[in-house]
């Protein structure tokens, strides 16, 4: 949990160290963030002790929040407040305002481990989540009650009744340009990228379409109706993820580039060894 201490960061290799050296003004923020994460771990162990640390400056507002949102606020004030600011209004140069992003956005960012952010870079990456499911729901509830915004439907399986045929058509016209035809992701400009869809859950895919995290465009409910979203999720989960490739090992579904590597590494290498043996003396 506390891997983001300076010691942990040091072990990350040359690249990250270079990046650290270049971005010294940010390191303070990161240190503070790291401290926050460490703190959180301690709090989770202690169980309930967080109330001691929770600042009661907004006591009046707190009273208007639901119970879940109040717990979420406590989590927020220990883990998120550094970058997103008090009352989620955002901090210039660190983190955007969360007013109006909605529970869907929080659930996407936190459940995929993208938030809390480990370090500032071109794009947040998927990591093991820091919070439990219940804590994520509390955080989401808090942000939702603060400023409203898009929300996810209930349930884990959001593609029940979705039509993979229609989903495939929608996927190819809306999603494959960035996430690639096999859902493996692809590169965007200057170090940004569209992530692989393989580890994503139904709720995460739904939330990503609804809220457009980072550089992903928003696909609101008017553009892709909820049943169309279910179609797309059905295609991603049922066809891309669960349907085994009929033609053998799929080479990562990366298209002709890995096929070209394979023909040299398997075909040519095997046949050159065969030729060496055939023409050999013994």
């Amino acid at each position: 949990m506390t891997s983001d201490t300076p010691g942990g960061a040091r072990s990350r290799g040359l690249l990250s160290r270079l990046r650290r050296a270049r971005s010294s003004p940010r390191s303070k923020a990161r240190r503070r963030l790291g401290a926050a994460v460490r703190l959180l771990a301690a709090l989770t162990l202690a169980g309930g002790a967080y109330t001691v640390f929770a600042p009661d400056l907004q006591a009046q507002e707190t009273s208007q929040l639901s119970a879940a949102a109040q717990e979420g606020k406590a989590l927020y004030d220990t883990s998120c407040v550094t970058c997103h600011g008090r009352n989620a209004q955002g901090v210039e140069g660190r983190g955007p305002s969360l007013i109006g992003v909605g529970a869907a956005s929080v659930e996407f960012q936190v459940s995929t481990g993208r938030m809390p952010l480990a370090r500032q870079e071109a794009q947040a990456e998927r990591k093991p989540p820091v919070f439990t499911d219940d804590q994520i729901q509390q955080l989401a509830q808090y942000v939702q009650e603060l400023g409203g915004g898009p929300q996810l439907p209930e349930g884990e399986n959001l593609h029940r009744g979705g039509d993979p045929v229609e989903g495939g058509r929608l996927f190819r016209i809306n999603c494959s340009s960035c996430h690639s035809f096999g859902g493996g992701g692809g590169a965007l400009s200057s170090g940004k990228f569209a992530p692989s869809l393989r580890p994503a859950t139904d709720r995460q895919i739904y939330a990503a379409m609804l809220t457009g995290p980072q550089n992903m465009p928003v696909f609101g409910d008017n553009q892709l109706r909820p049943e169309q979203k279910a179609d797309i999720i059905a295609y991603v989960q049922e066809v891309l993820a669960k349907d085994r490739d009929p033609g053998g090992f799929n080479l990562g579904r990366l298209g002709p580039s890995t096929e070209g590597v394979a023909v040299f590494l398997i075909g040519i290498v095997a046949l050159v060894f065969a030729a060496l043996w055939i023409a050999g003396k013994s």
Partner: peptide, 19 residues
């Protein structure tokens, strides 16, 4: 849209795009 239905302004959310 792809299926021939006309596009209304509210069909595209801010930050969204559509072919």
């Amino acid at each position: 849209h792809h299926d021939g239905t006309p596009v209304r302004p509210e069909d595209v959310s801010p930050g969204g795009q559509i072919t």
